[in-house]
């Protein structure tokens, strides 16, 4: 929970970075940010925003990139990766002043459909392997996709836990209002897998179209509990209480990345993939709540 807090505070003291570039500054060259924050903090009392930040993070070098890159790199990434990818893209831009990185975020299947219809993209990151396979089958991927992260489901309740939820099985107790994703959307399909693995049949009061809607029902206290991704629970911070689900490994969502066959900037594309799979990429992903590529 440390990194998101730090991220929010950083955002606060920077008056909300408007561009990915500023956010990258916050992550990869935090010393600069510390200075900026301290300066602002003198006036508004948020000068203590920085201490959570370890020095190692502040100076962590990016994955070495052989040559100077230029041009415009276009990245299509699943919506759940928005912040991670934007941060890394900005970091890449910082390392290569001649390079511009454009990112586009949407649901995985929508992105895949766009690629299939010939949208000009260099890199595609999806939130599940099935969708990526579609693009591979269409012959639109150069090389083989590489899994960069995993995401698992977790149970969240309002902080005061009105229904006393201690396990996944508790969700099936009568009188517990549980909200999940609809089976039609990926997080709902994963929830069904989890139900099978645990042998617990849920009777949700609502099946939402997106995981953020599930989270909203829990943070507002409407629902007693919700099944969301670990990354969503991480993002929600103190607004929810997280319940460990030991069986979470039964439904692992893998996030594959691939350079597309029609990429106009293959070198820059490769650099971004390297950044994602490298140490800094993995650290940023972990901070956002993602699991390692091999799963939990």
């Amino acid at each position: 929970m440390r990194a998101p807090k730090q991220g929010r505070r950083t955002a606060g003291c920077l008056v909300r970075p408007r561009t990915a570039g500023l956010r990258a500054v916050a992550l990869s060259s935090s010393l600069l940010v510390l200075t900026a924050c301290a300066g602002a903090g003198d006036d508004d009392g948020t000068g203590d925003a920085a201490p959570g930040l370890p020095a190692a993070e502040a100076t962590a070098p990016g994955t070495p990139v052989p040559d100077e890159l230029s041009g415009t790199l276009t990245v299509f990434a699943a919506a759940s990766l928005t912040e991670v990818v934007d941060d890394l893209a900005a970091a890449l831009e910082q390392q290569h002043p001649g390079l511009t990185v454009r990112t586009s975020h949407a649901g995985s299947s929508e992105l895949a459909a766009q690629v299939e219809q010939g949208a000009p993209a260099d890199v595609l990151v999806t939130a599940d392997e099935a969708t990526m396979q579609r693009v591979v089958d269409a012959g639109l991927v150069a090389g083989a996709p590489e899994v960069v992260a995993t995401n698992t489901l977790t149970v969240v309740t309002p902080p005061d836990d009105p229904a006393g939820v201690g396990s996944f099985a508790d969700l099936a107790r009568p009188g517990t209002d549980v909200v999940v994703c609809a089976p039609q959307v990926p997080c709902g399909a994963a929830t069904e897998q989890l139900e099978e693995a645990t042998g617990v049949a849920l009777h949700p009061v609502s099946e939402e179209g997106s995981v953020t809607d599930v989270l909203g029902k829990v943070t507002s206290g409407q629902a007693d509990a919700g099944v969301v991704y670990a990354t969503d629970a991480r993002r929600a911070g103190d607004a929810v209480r997280e319940v460990e689900v030991p069986e979470a490994g039964a439904a692992v969502n893998a996030y594959p990345v691939a350079v597309l066959a029609d990429a106009t900037e293959p070198d820059a594309a490769a650099a971004l993939v390297a950044l994602l799979t490298g140490a800094e990429g993995q650290r940023v992903l972990a901070d956002a709540g993602f699991g390692p590529p091999g799963g939990p």
Binding site: A182, Q184, V185, S206, E207, G209, G216, Q222, A223
Partner: peptide, 26 residues
């Protein structure tokens, strides 16, 4: 409705919510 009532077939999932849900998958 989405914010307040939820989305469950036959109980709270009205036409617009169904459209919203089907939009990506079907």
């Amino acid at each position: 409705t989405l914010t307040f009532a939820g989305s469950l077939q036959g109980t709270t999932r009205t036409l617009p919510l169904e459209v919203y849900l089907q939009r990506e998958t079907d």
